[in-house]
Amino acid sequence: MKIACLGWGSLVWNPGELPLRSGWYTDGPSIRVEFVRQSGKEHGRITLVILPSSEVVTSLWAEMDSDDPEDAKELLRQREGKPHRHHIGLWHAGWAEPGSLPGLTEWASSGEIDAVIWTDLPPKFQGAEGRVPSVEEVAAYLRELPNEPQAAAFEYIRRAPVQIDTAYRRELAHLVPETANP
């Protein structure tokens, strides 16, 4: 069974213990993600999550070293710090297409992929799950961070794959020091 894991943020440059059979391919399905999740466990970074109202970008994907979709989903959940199981997406060939990933079925079918997993955390800002901050709020938040957390937050933005060219990323680029740009 061929199981694809989608990536667009730190999973790509730091898969940790996630067992992959391949490197990351840049021809994943079209997705809509944005820098709208304040991540307290990672020094207050603003991370990328699916946001249906954002621009379309092309995700990355890697083949999981697993032949069981439920096992692959659990492995991704562990890598992501054990979020709720419903925050890890899973799609199988023959299932209805997930509303948050239109075009997934066609993409998977063209690559002979049997199942797809992805991180499906919601936006979150100032402790409010589901709250989508404006780009101005994100910029103000980043400017106010102490030096070390700010450097980690900028590193996350800088290391996001180049093809994840979002509206917030373009607006925040002026905050990221020149030496930190990709």
Rank of each mutant, 00 (worst) to 15 (best):
L75I: 10
G44T: 11
G23E: 07
N14E: 13
P19L: 11
I50F: 09
L75A: 13
G40H: 09
A62E: 04
D67Y: 13
V57E: 07
R21D: 09
G40W: 07
R45K: 05
L20N: 07
P19I: 09
L60S: 08
K41W: 08
Q78R: 12
R79S: 04
G23T: 09
V36P: 01
T58E: 01
N14P: 06
G28L: 02
S30W: 05
S59N: 01
I31E: 08
H86W: 14
R21N: 08
Q38E: 15
E55N: 12
V33S: 00
K82T: 11
I50G: 05
T47M: 06
W91A: 11
D67L: 14
I46C: 12
G16Q: 07
T26R: 13
H86G: 11
S53R: 06
R45H: 05
H43E: 14
D67M: 13
V36A: 05
E70V: 06
V36F: 00
L18H: 04
W61C: 02
L76V: 01
S66D: 15
R45N: 06
E80T: 11
K41A: 12
S39G: 14
L75T: 10
L75E: 13
H87C: 06
V36D: 07
Q78E: 13
G44S: 12
I46S: 10
L18C: 03
E55L: 14
E42R: 15
G89H: 03
I31A: 10
P52W: 09
Y25Q: 15
Q78W: 09
S22D: 04
H84T: 14
P19M: 12
L76W: 01
R37K: 10
R21F: 02
P69L: 07
G40K: 07
R37W: 03
A62L: 03
E74W: 01
G16I: 04
H43D: 15
E55T: 11
W24F: 12
T47A: 03
V56Q: 09
E34T: 05
T47I: 06
A62N: 05
L11I: 08
V56M: 10
V57N: 03
G81V: 09
A72D: 00
G44Y: 08
W13A: 01
P15H: 09
H86I: 12
D65M: 02
L48C: 01
E70F: 08
H84F: 13
Q78I: 10
R79D: 05
S22V: 03
W91R: 12
G89N: 04
T47Q: 03
S39K: 13
L48T: 00
K82S: 14
P15C: 05
L18I: 02
T26P: 12
D67I: 14
P15Q: 05
E17Y: 13
E34P: 04
N14W: 15
E34G: 05
L18K: 02
S59Y: 01
G23N: 09
I88P: 00
H87A: 07
E80C: 12
W24V: 02
S54F: 06
W91N: 10
D68S: 11
P83T: 15
P19V: 10
L75W: 11
S66C: 15
M64Q: 07
P29H: 04
W24L: 07
W13E: 00
R21V: 04
H43M: 13
H86M: 13
E74M: 02
G81T: 10
P69T: 06
H43N: 14
E80M: 10
E17I: 10
I88V: 01
G28E: 04
V49K: 01
I46A: 11
G81I: 09
R85C: 15
E74D: 03
D67R: 14
G89Y: 03
